[in-house]
Design a protein around this nucleic acid. Structure first.
Lengths: 152, 152
DNA sequence: GAAGATTGAAGCGTCAATCTTT
DNA sequence: AAAGATTGACGCTTCAATCTTC
């Protein structure tokens, strides 16, 4: 059973991520925010610069389909947290910016998030976390192999 | 920045799981199967026993809402891979069983899955994987802490 | 033609409400 | 009343097709 350990590893990584996702959804819910929307807030808040991101760029950072960004931004714009601004140079493009309300919400959600993450990872130990991060990076790099099973 | 490492760890676990999910979807797609459906196949196939699982039990194992199981089983029954059998003792319950076609599909999908997982985890090293598994288990155990931020 | 954004269809997931059976 | 299953509303995600602009 050489690969059994690998199978378990993959399963537990996915199970852990599942739990994190579920719990973060629960954490953000009272703020009217979803986990996906918090990611957007986070990215846009750090893009403090003037230009803002295009929807395409946001999708690339989130690693989601462009079509997904449309609805996500729709909902967040409706909630008043994000604005679409016409790009002056290219009329195909919208530039995304946080509204003041969006920035305020981000300011409220972030310490909450950091607090629980800090608690959950508290006893993990710096070295062990770094080793795990290295392993995860290797797995991510090898993931493209999934695309080529063998043309069954 | 004591907690920054923890934040990175959480982010990378979720990113890695994301990649695995995406790639496994791609892997199963030619078989007309989704990743969630493969999990069902897998659980039901190992439940080789006679009784089968109730939908409630399946949901508990998958860690998804009961309401989700209904649609999942609907679609798999429509594809002819799963059967709902009336429980002889309790008329509220359906017992779920793989059809022969479902078992055959499972037999086809599983070696494919194990092959790619084996490739992706190939260079990881037994000891490192075991250490990571231990860390993941700790994180999962601590996850309930997410529920109690501090009643903001 | 290619790139950015959108739309529609489908699957997966949650939650809240309902129905049947226990 | 409690438990198993279902339904409906909503959000996230993908894929394929379309529209506008480059």
């Amino acid at each position: 059973m050489k690969s059994e350990l690998g199978t378990r590893l993959v399963r537990e990584i996915m199970a852990t991520a599942d739990i994190f996702l579920r719990e973060s959804q629960r954490l953000f819910r009272p703020l009217g925010l979803t986990a996906a929307q918090y990611n957007v807030l986070n990215i846009l808040a750090e893009e403090d610069g003037e230009r803002g991101l295009s929807q395409r760029e946001l999708g690339d950072i989130l690693v989601v389909d462009r079509s997904n960004v449309t609805g996500l931004v729709d909902r967040m714009a409706k909630s008043g947290w994000v604005r679409r601004v016409d790009d002056p140079d290219d009329r195909r493009i919208f530039r995304l910016m946080l509204t003041p309300a969006g920035r305020e919400l981000w300011g409220k959600a972030t310490p909450l998030y950091h607090e629980v993450v800090g608690q959950v990872t508290a006893g993990a130990g710096r070295k062990r976390m770094e080793e795990t991060l290295a392993l995860l990076a290797e797995l991510q790099n090898r993931a493209p192999l999934w695309e080529t099973p063998q043309k069954i």
